[in-house]
């Protein structure tokens, strides 16, 4: 298993990918209709997943595939559809021709500067990989990325899972006052269709299986809680869109506990580490792997719920079928 068995074919794939990615990026920035730009962006995320595979970052590729094409696509496509009526007025805000030229030149200069940096990267490249490989066995996990996320740089991961909660509070906080505490209402509610219902009934069991598999496997192989949580969130949202379930009301106390339990368990184990292993977020000898798995399991649930609710948007109304539009008409 050599890294580049055949240099030329591999390089052709890479070059094709780069051209495609740049072409789509150009389309996203330059096309006039926002909806087309968003569709281009979804395709762009898909290609980026393949790019990550080519860069030997399979963990990242999974995250990109799940977040970039799945959840972000839903979020942005929905927003573009709802913003379409306002779009015609946007043309007025365009900067003038000369200003655009100037901006273009400056951006090109920045890109060229970055390109120069890429070409001048030190060779041999500095790396922390040997250090990680050396320190991986004590953690008991076999996937170096998971090891970094949960053992070596656990503070980053903790802050990240904490930061998702304020992000959700931020989304909720743009709700209109009377709607506070109600059910999220940004999800699209298409006309009920048997195909959609079928998809929402058949796909989630597979999705949940794959999500659990990703989390469980993430200890030793590519995968992990973010990827698994994204899949779980996507399945939940699919069920909500199909109308098989209603999104939970924001004031629901059990929901709120679910949202923060992951970070709390993480912090709790981290604080316990001060006494048991002499450092915040350190794991006692021999217990690293079970503790990491426990944290991953609870964090997965919390992250999945948070991601799903981020997509579902701010609370809209208490009306069972109430979207934003219904609540506005009545008010």
């Amino acid at each position: 298993m050599t890294r580049y068995p055949v240099m030329t074919s591999a390089l052709v794939v890479d070059a094709a990918l780069v051209l495609l990615v740049l072409g789509l990026a150009l389309w996203v920035t330059s096309t006039r209709a926002a909806y087309s730009a968003v569709v281009g962006f979804v395709a762009y995320g898909l290609l980026m997943a393949i790019v990550w595979v080519r860069l030997a970052a399979v963990d990242v590729a999974m995250t990109e595939a799940a977040l970039g094409t799945g959840l972000t696509g839903l979020l942005l496509l929905g927003a573009a559809a709802r913003l379409a009526p306002y779009e015609a007025a946007e043309v007025n805000g365009r900067p003038g021709r000369w200003l655009r030229l100037l901006i273009g030149l400056l951006c090109a200069a920045i890109a060229l500067g970055l390109a120069a940096v890429v070409l001048m990267l030190p060779d041999p490249a500095p790396t922390l990989a040997p250090l990680v490989a050396e320190n991986l066995p004590p953690t008991g996990v076999g996937n170096p990325v998971t090891g970094v996320l949960l053992a070596h740089r656990a503070i980053d991961t903790l802050l990240e899972s904490v930061v998702l909660v304020p992000a959700l509070i931020g989304v909720w906080s743009v709700a209109a006052d009377p709607a506070w505490g109600g059910r999220p209402g940004s999800l699209p509610r298409p006309r009920s269709s048997s195909a959609l219902t079928l998809l929402a009934q058949v796909l989630p069991p597979f999705g949940i299986l794959i999500g659990i598999h990703l989390v469980w496997n993430g200890a030793d192989d590519p995968g992990g809680k973010f990827q698994g949580a994204t899949v779980l969130a996507a399945m939940w949202i699919l069920v909500l869109i199909a109308g098989l379930r209603e999104p939970p009301a924001v004031r629901d106390r059990r929901l709120r506990v679910l949202l923060v339990i992951g970070a709390l368990v993480f912090i709790g184990i981290g604080v316990a580490g001060i006494w048991l292993a002499d450092a915040f977020l350190a794991y006692p000898e021999g217990y690293a792997k079970p503790l990491i798995l426990a944290i991953e399991a609870v964090l997965t649930l919390s992250i999945a719920a948070t991601l799903g609710l981020l997509l579902a948007g701010p609370p809209a109304s208490d009306h069972p079928s109430g979207g934003l539009y219904e609540s506005k008409k009545s008010g």
């Binding site: 399979v58 999974m62 799945g70 959840l71 590519p222 899949v231």
Partner: peptide, 29 residues
């Protein structure tokens, strides 16, 4: 690299998702 197949699995699983969003988006406005 066997794990690449799992990326493909994820893509296949979530490809339907964007289209569902698209269909719902078309009907909304």
């Amino acid at each position: 690299v066997g794990a690449i197949a799992e990326v493909a699995l994820l893509l296949a699983l979530l490809a339907a998702f964007a289209s569902v969003a698209f269909v719902s988006g078309v009907h909304r406005p």
